[in-house]
Design a protein around this nucleic acid. Structure first.
Length: 302
DNA sequence: TTTGCTGT
């Protein structure tokens, strides 16, 4: 494997190297492909298997996954499931397409035995070396390793918290003024929704939005970090669905630019129609929702 | 409080 890594880094990518890499990847993916499109089977195959009792863990996990994904998958590229969240990985950009969480008063409840400081940012060994990011990519980059599934949403259980520290759940985020401020405020707001609603479903991900350049044409331009060329998203989105006690659903959708944001800006300033995000990201959110149950979008009745 | 960084 080291040979291929050096091959990639040290010289230009030739057809031979590409084919060799493809074969390795195909071999690794085969068990998953065989059972596809059995959705939960595919999720099983992506589950890390270094666990003492794999079979019972599978059952517990798959029950939880079906809860989290109750209203449908936004897309099906490179699905990976963890004990308390689900992720779709973008191998080209080395950042997830989306992560999905199900928050309840119980799952966000503070457990004094859970210590975030004991968690380390770690590379996701389940991602092929060609396509995974590493801590070195972020070091001295000027960007934070920003959680997509927030650690603060998984404070009830130490392993759940640690699962959010895989680099597959990270994206390069502007630190001061964004990740540690406006974006953090949005994450706290979503957590707080569990005080009012018994079920909160949250989908989070990056966007790479076009922008008009000096020549008047539209271009998608974004920085990449380190030897693995980890993409720096131009924006991040969050789409949230809250279930009321009467079973009715309320949806909110936000897009924030990955830049310093004025601390005075209210969160409502970043609300957008969810279909705007769907078109920009190539995803469909909450497609399994019965639209008759959806009563409001961004606070406006529908 | 929660979000992270750098350097030893």
């Amino acid at each position: 494997m080291m040979f291929f890594r050096r091959f990639l880094i040290g010289s230009s990518l030739t057809l031979t190297g590409f084919l060799a890499g493809s074969l390795i990847e195909r071999r690794k993916q085969e068990p998953c492909q065989k059972v596809f499109p059995g959705l939960f089977d595919a999720v099983y195959a992506a589950t890390p298997v270094s666990l003492p009792d794999v079979q019972s863990h599978k059952n517990v996990t798959s029950n939880r996954i079906s809860q989290i994904m109750r209203f449908g998958f936004p897309g099906f590229d490179q699905i990976r499931s963890f004990d308390d969240y689900v992720l779709s990985y973008d191998r080209r950009n080395r950042v997830a397409h989306w992560v999905f969480e199900h928050l309840t008063p119980e799952t966000v409840k503070h457990n004094p035995e859970v210590d975030r400081a004991k968690c380390d940012f770690k590379r996701d060994e389940t991602v092929h070396p060609f396509f995974r990011s590493d801590n070195s990519d972020y070091k001295h980059s000027g960007f934070d390793r920003g959680h997509l599934a927030a650690a603060g949403n998984h404070k009830a259980n130490q392993k759940h918290c640690e699962d959010t520290f895989f680099l597959s759940n990270m994206a390069p985020q502007v630190g001061k003024g964004f990740n540690r401020d406006a974006w953090n405020k949005l994450e706290k707001y979503v957590r707080k929704l569990t005080k009012k609603y018994s079920n909160v479903y949250c989908c989070t991900g990056p966007l790479y939005l076009p922008r008009k350049e000096a020549d008047g044409k539209m271009y998608v331009k974004y920085q990449v970090l380190g030897t693995n060329s980890v993409a720096v998203p131009t924006h991040f989105f969050k789409v949230v669905v809250c279930e009321r006690s009467d079973g009715r659903l309320e949806m909110e959708a936000y897009v924030m630019p990955n830049q310093v944001i004025n601390d005075e800006s209210p969160l409502t300033m970043f609300q957008v129609p969810p279909e705007t995000i769907e078109r920009a990201a190539g995803l469909l959110f909450f497609s399994q929702i019965n639209r008759r149950h959806l009563v409001s979008i961004n606070g406006k009745n529908v």
